[in-house]
Amino acid sequence: MKRRHTFLVSMLGFGFAFFYIPILSMIVYSFNESRLASVWGGFSTKWYVSLFSNKQVIDALILSLEIALVSASIATILGTMAGIALARFTKFRGRLLFSGLVTAPLIMPEVITGISSLMFFILMAQWIGWPAQRGFTTVTLAHITFSMVFVTTIVQARMLQSDRSIEEAAMDLGSRPWEVLRDVTLPVISPAVMSGWLLAFTISLDDVVITSFTTGPGSTTLPLLIWSKVKLGVTPDINALATLMVGIVAIGVVIAGIFMNRAEHRRQRDEQMAFRANG
């Protein structure tokens, strides 16, 4: 097209500046010698050193990763089951309620999910003595519940795209329904399942509100630790922590981008191969 999009391009420029200037500023100040977060006192890496020697931070990080790993994995299993069920079984008793339950956590404000989970756990402890104390288990249960519906959304969308007849073909060739699931359905939707897991993992790793309601004494996740520090104001070691987290995510995204690019090239090559085979 010959038309120039000066306005649109400058909006893109403005938007990306808006996105990245705060992050860049944070990165720069993580190397600040001065304790005063907003005054430049020369280059230093001392905040990184103090970060790595802070046992509290390391413990919180490990706890967060454990919770994210367990909750994302269980959420992926349950969410994938729900996604397949909703895409494949169009009629069963209670389907309307089920599909409502799968969308509701997506739009429920986190505060409400948080207090409802906490009341549930408190009352449960009172009625049946479980959970005796809040911590790893209760946080993980809450994370599974609100991250599984994200997995369901992704898997359901993928299932609705895929050709149903390949599942029928497998069944026709002698496979029982669960064998069809194992041999055909799951391999075909595996990229969606993996991105579902990644999303559930990120959501769990990032959550503050629901975790703050469902956790108990002694179980501080990394976001909770940051939360309690940040409430008191800007501190340079949080800048350092943020820089590390942004760096890890950026590296991850770049690697994922390279893989996607490669897959795209491979697909193009295969198409050419199929085209030649036609001749």
């Binding site: 007849s165 390949i166 029928e168 497998a170 069944m171 026709d172 060739l173 002698g174 075909v188």
Partner: peptide
Amino acid sequence: VAPWDRPVHMMFQSYALFPH
């Protein structure tokens, strides 16, 4: 008799080959 127990096989219109 379930589809998987029938000595009947089908060639689908879309061929339904397993892509993986």
